[in-house]
Design a protein around this nucleic acid. Structure first.
Lengths: 261, 261
DNA sequence: TAAATTTTGTCAAGCGAATGTAAAAGATTG
DNA sequence: CAATCTTTTACATTCGCTTGACAAAATTTA
């Protein structure tokens, strides 16, 4: 059984295509690449990974990778890629499962699946799995690249979700996971940061503990709702001037918590 | 062949977790749970059914069950559950068939499948079967519970459209439960807000205390009618310019109260 | 009209549930 | 192993809802 694929070599037209080489995908002309578009490749064939990495990096993307499903899911959730290229057939966890779980936790993160011809393609882009596009192996790198760009264009119209949020004298950088108060770094654990990030991206909205658990913790390990409260305490200790009189993360008695910028 | 699964025991945190225990799934603020959310469990293992029943009932759901496919399909169609948990492997009729027929007749009824790992998961959530989610055995009850809640939340979004009522210089947002007077937020407890919302949606109408209790308090906990009066006091303190001379919520002696925009 | 009766306004406990918080226990990482 | 992060547990505290009491107002009755 030959699972080996035609491993893509370097691009054929190294010099030619200047316009694309710049930042990540297009539409970033004014501000010079503050943040490059980050692609996560989840694929168990090292040669395939290497080939894709070459090509994507050549095109100006930042590339991170994982070699099996569980690792891929983890990186997707912790390293904030802008798009995931996901092989269907992989050890440890099927790409289908990864895709589904990913879409449950980060619905907006675009996913492109790599499937073998004859695999059940309709399922892949089906409703629940929610992949944004797919490419059947063996594929040309050009095709994959084109689809990646198309999906990115479609998914994030001109400007994508902000990388740096600001409120009061805080600066929260979802790219490198740094939080600064008046320029000075404040340390957050990963859960704390994830929770904070979710609050920030839903300002003014009252978020129930259940919803926070869904969004930040996911479904597999679903802790006690009081766990949320504990983390709130920690956030407040780091964010609030006076943690006993919160002004940033408010409690809505009987409902949950609310972030107010 | 060991089809036995880890049968879920009672919840670990009997006392602690209050917020989740309440009625069905969340988002019932206005009229407190008149009807509990009903879950149908279709599963042939009695021990599994018992375990799940325990847990779901503990969380405030109503549980009905069926022990094979045909019975499950019948109950699903006749007993109006809000969600179905459906085992794939069952006597008489496969869960896949049940799901398919169910979705044909009640497309909006959410279904979560219980599958063994390695079963054709992609089929399950695929287009034609149309299950809303799945959990692979052996699963933790917490995960199933989390997915149930998530599906219910997803299926019945808490009326996404922000409905804003205005009167005088007030602005009442039933989406995020905010009340503003001239732009400034005024805090309302959940009961107070529910009561206000009911008044607002029945302007000019004289509402008896009994009717208010029915609508706002629901039938389960039916307090003294004087409780209404107390809440009226609170509303007036927050709404009226001069609470002793109400102009927004008027008393109709012998009948009840009346909201005048 | 005055008195009697009913209805409503209002307030201050009391109670149970929700939350704040610290510390123990468990899990993870290096 | 220690060090750190996460989750659970336990207890204190706060909060909102309800109730009962009494005063004030409205209505009815005499």
């Amino acid at each position: 059984m030959n699972r080996k694929q035609e491993v893509p070599g370097r691009p054929r037209d190294p010099a030619a295509d200047g316009s694309r080489a710049a930042g990540g995908h297009g539409s970033e002309t004014a501000m010079s690449a503050i943040k490059r578009t980050r692609i996560l490749i989840v694929e168990d064939e090292p040669a395939m990974v290497a080939g894709l990495r070459d090509n994507f990096e050549y095109e100006g993307y930042e590339v991170i990778s994982a070699h099996d499903g569980t690792a891929g899911l983890e990186r997707a959730l912790t390293d904030y890629p802008d798009l995931v290229v996901l092989d269907v057939m992989m050890p440890r966890m099927s790409g289908l499962d990864v895709c589904k779980q990913l879409k449950a936790k980060r619905p907006s993160l675009p996913v492109i699946m790599l499937t073998a011809r004859g695999q059940e393609i309709d399922k892949v882009v089906g409703l629940e799995l929610g992949a944004d596009d797919y490419v059947t192996k063996p594929f040309s790198v050009r095709e994959l690249m084109a689809r990646v760009k198309a999906v990115l264009r479609r998914v994030s119209p001109p400007s994508r979700a902000p990388v740096v949020y600001r409120f009061n004298d805080f600066e929260v950088n979802t790219h490198n996971h740094e939080v600064r108060r008046a320029g000075k770094i404040i340390e957050f654990s990963s859960k704390e940061f994830a929770l904070l990030a979710y609050f920030i991206s839903h300002p003014g909205e009252t978020l129930s503990r259940d919803r926070l658990l869904d969004a930040v913790w996911g479904f597999e390990n679903y802790p006690n709702t009081r766990t949320v409260d504990t983390h709130i305490v920690h956030l407040r200790q780091k964010l609030e001037v006076n943690p006993e009189e919160p002004r940033i993360i408010l409690t809505v008695h009987g409902s949950g918590y609310k972030f107010v910028g």
